[in-house]
Design a binder for these strands. Structure first.
Length: 791
DNA sequence: ATTCGCAAAGTTTTT
DNA sequence: CTTTGCGAAT
């Protein structure tokens, strides 16, 4: 490599970044504040290593999400074409490793990766087998407990219940039974992927050695979010050669509830005494006013290493802090602001993101964005694979790939109905258990099960024969397999038989699965196949499905926002019980994690940030008054644009006293019951200007305090509102429900095509259109500009 | 064996 | 409000 290309790698960096990039051998800890160019440093360092003669296949880079891995790969392709660096998530790395060496930990290569729902089923079975009394505990609590244990690196054999601890005593029975059932089914849960991998390297020192040497250069991203199992894995792969570089930021640790432990990053210096530490503290992302807010907030955490974020960016607009009367007001105002900024402010939809603590908060935001005609995407990736019909079909695939998969077997043996009921199933199950068979094997030899009578016996045989026929084609393309399953089972007809709309919707989702499989097949001509398909289906994360290039406003949880950045950000629902969440309010450590979560959300912002709360919130079936989040009191409010609620929006004088934000902020207290009385979420009106007071009243609290940089909240009233609505209407968009299968439609870019399938509903309603020459394309009907071609 | 209906319970974040 | 689970009826 030429000196020229080396300087290309180093020139765009600041001093600290350059120091990190040029570090070659030995352990390194990169403490990277938000927006400090971490990804750039990591990718440039890898390119630098390659330039120094390190073979690229000796480099292993583990990230937190597939998305981050993909991003890294993309940048690397630009910096070091034809590199062979292995990038991916911990879970994926472990899955791949286990596939090759499964027998060493008592698994077969074709093991199934169970998602949380599947694990829950296994836990339930385990509870039943143990015949324990679970009146006081839900299966969910067992799943969580077991997962927590695993995250701490405690295996079923090692677990010893504390004496006198009732729940732990039960877990002491259920946990081993659960593991036994998993093993019988040749399945693993998410945590097992890591644990089995650790076990693998512990059991086989030669293999460990091989990996250690093969991946001489090892990088780990988001080190503050690693748990004990991941830590152990890292240590095992860094035993002989300690060229480990980790990046992280203790202030951004937000996965403690999943077993992540700050000890890993805080103890790094202890683990590797000769460590090189690089601090990246200059922020290139956010304006000064945003950083000030973030900095002041995180200062309230006691358990942290002090760090001051600094930046040479502009001061920027003040951060807005707004209290809305209702969640609807919050949603409508945000949607309108975004719509206006797109129309007049030169912004694009993809410049915006809205963050919330819980997924449930997305509903009203979606509703308002739809009304405002703003295209948006909600980032939650598992949704599709969680649907019943999809899970059913995927279960068929699992059973084909791993015939021992009892969870899959139980799920689909009678779906569609084959007259194999609970009783018969129970008989198969106990026969399987008595003879150490998988349920499919047991079903195969159902002649030997005397308790099963003639009719069910025949039905079972039919099922087994069908699976045999399908099994013959299990190594062809995934699309073909799914189609064959649909053929054999008449699954689609079963869905649509009743003629209900729901049935057709589900059938549409089934069709979408076929298209997705088709896409997978064409994207993976070499490394495809059933097993890989199932693996990626199991390991997709929420952020992975986020389309960064698509022109949508992004809605996501604060957790999903990690690692992303947007010019304009809205953070909603800053209310006590939501943030900090009521389930996290137990001790200081949890509160600090919630604060870090808020910190992460704030620091995603590049230019404009609004933080808001509503004075009432819909919970448990009705509207309840809210209390401001304690975190709001920790912000530098004197340098922010604060929009307080006007007096008529205050819920009650009782709350006024509790609510720290309101306390002393409002003079005349008027009780207004109507606010808490409840406004239907589906209210059909687009927006009633009367719901807002005049802009003056909203800014009143502000004027009373002090003069702030000019910033007037934009609120549409009367004519202006009508004007805006008219503008929205001028792009005539056909209503999503107006489309039918078989219709001719016209698209601006693709021309005329025929709708071949419809799926999803409301904002997610999707049409697949066949443009003969150009192939099939899929559209979100609520956003695309598809016109119906008149006959 | 399946379906329907009612009651109760539970509501975070995710690989 | 939702989802889930259980029990009774068909």
């Amino acid at each position: 490599m030429t000196p020229d290309s080396i300087s290309q790698l180093l020139d765009p960096l600041n001093e600290a970044q350059r120091e990190a990039v040029q570090h070659v051998d030995g352990p390194m800890l990169i403490l990277a504040g938000p927006g400090s160019g971490k990804t750039r440093v990591v990718t440039h360092r890898i390119a630098y290593l390659i330039a120094q003669g390190v073979p690229s296949h000796c480099i292993l880079a583990l990230t937190f999400t597939n998305k981050a891995a993909q991003e890294m790969r993309l940048r690397l392709d630009g910096l070091a074409p034809q590199h062979r660096v292995w990038t991916g998530t911990f879970h994926k790395f472990c899955a791949r490793t286990l596939r090759i060496h499964a027998p060493l930990v008592g698994l077969a290569e074709n093991f199934t990766i169970y998602d949380t729902g599947d694990s829950k089923k296994v836990v339930k079975q385990a509870i039943q087998n143990c015949e324990v009394d679970l009146r006081h505990h839900s299966p969910d609590s067992f799943v969580n407990h077991i997962s927590n244990l695993k995250n701490k690196g405690v295996t079923a054999e090692e677990f010893v219940p504390r004496p006198g601890h009732a729940l732990e005593a039960i877990i002491g029975k259920v946990f081993p039974e659960y593991q036994k059932l998993l093993r019988l089914a040749n399945g693993v849960d998410f945590d097992d992927l890591l644990l089995h991998c650790v076990e693998l390297f512990r059991n086989s020192p030669e293999l460990r050695q091989t990996f250690d040497e093969k991946y001489a250069y090892f990088m780990v991203d988001e080190y503050q979010d690693t748990n004990l199992a991941q830590y152990q894995l890292i240590r095992l792969l860094n035993h002989s050669i300690q060229n480990l570089a980790v990046t992280g930021d203790p202030d951004q640790s937000i996965y403690g509830w999943r077993g992540a432990t700050l000890k890993n990053i805080l103890g790094f210096e202890h683990d590797y005494p000769n460590v090189k530490i690089v601090r990246l503290e200059q922020n290139y992302r956010s304006t000064k006013s945003i950083l000030r807010v973030a900095d002041q907030l995180i200062e309230n955490n006691l358990k942290r290493k002090h760090k001051r974020l600094h930046s040479e960016n502009e001061e920027g607009k003040p951060v807005r802090l707004v209290a809305y009367p209702t969640p609807q007001d919050e949603a409508i105002d945000i949607a309108d602001s975004i719509a206006l900024a797109i129309q007049k402010g030169g912004r694009r939809p993809r410049d915006f993101a809205i963050f919330y603590r819980t997924n449930a908060l997305s509903r009203s935001l979606e509703h308002s964005l739809r009304l405002a005609g703003v295209p948006y995407q909600v980032v939650n990736g598992h949704e599709f694979y969680q649907r019943r019909e999809i899970k059913d079909l995927v279960a068929y695939l699992h059973l084909l790939n791993n015939p021992r998969d009892n969870v899959a077997f139980e799920r689909i043996v009678n779906v569609p109905p084959r007259k194999i009921g609970k009783v018969t199933l129970g008989r198969i199950r106990s026969f399987a258990e008595d003879n150490r068979l998988s349920m499919l094997e047991a079903a195969r030899s159902c002649d030997s099960i005397s308790a099963i009578s003639k009719v069910p016996n025949a039905k079972i045989k039919q099922f087994v024969l069908m699976m045999d026929r399908l099994s013959e084609i299990r190594s062809v393309e995934v699309e073909t397999i799914i189609k064959a399953i649909l053929d054999e089972t008449a699954y689609r007809d079963w869905l649509t038989d009743d003629g209900s709309e729901e049935g057709h919707e589900r059938a549409g989702n089934v069709d979408e699965l076929v298209v997705a499989a088709q896409e997978f097949d064409s994207e993976h001509p070499e490394d495809g196949g059933l097993e890989r398909y199932l693996e990626q289906a199991a390991l997709v994360s929420d952020t992975d499905v986020w389309e960064s290039t698509a022109d949508f406003v992004s809605l996501m949880t604060m957790h999903a926002a990690k690692g992303l950045e947007f010019p304009c950000v809205y953070i909603v629902g800053l209310e006590d019980g939501l943030l900090p969440h009521e389930r996290s309010s137990n001790d200081d450590e949890e509160i600090e994690e919630e604060r870090r979560l808020f910190f992460v959300a704030i620091t995603r912002t590049q230019e404009e940030l609004q933080i808001s709360r509503a004075m009432s919130r819909f919970r448990r079936g009705s509207y309840w008054p809210t209390i401001a989040s304690r975190f709001l009191m920790e912000l530098p409010r004197q340098s922010m644009a604060v929009f307080e609620p006007s007096s008529s929006e205050v819920n009650s004088d009782i709350l006024d006293e509790i609510d720290p934000w309101l306390h002393g902020g409002v003079d005349d207290k008027i009780v207004d019951d109507s606010l808490a009385a409840g406004i239907p979420e589906d209210l059909d009106i687009s927006f009633d200007p009367a719901m807002f007071e005049s802009p003056e009243s909203l800014t009143r609290g502000l004027k009373d305090r002090q003069k702030l940089p000019s910033f007037t909240p934009r609120i549409f009233t009367g004519a202006e509102f009508a004007d805006q609505q008219e503008k929205l209407r001028s792009t005539v968009r056909v209503h999503p429900n107006a489309f039918r299968i078989g219709m001719q439609v016209e698209h601006l870019d693709y021309g005329i095509g025929t709708i071949v399938m419809l799926s999803g509903k409301a904002a997610k309603k999707t049409a697949t259109v066949d443009f003969s020459d150009l192939g099939k394309k899929r559209f979100r009907l609520a956003f695309c500009n598809l016109q119906i071609v008149d006959e």
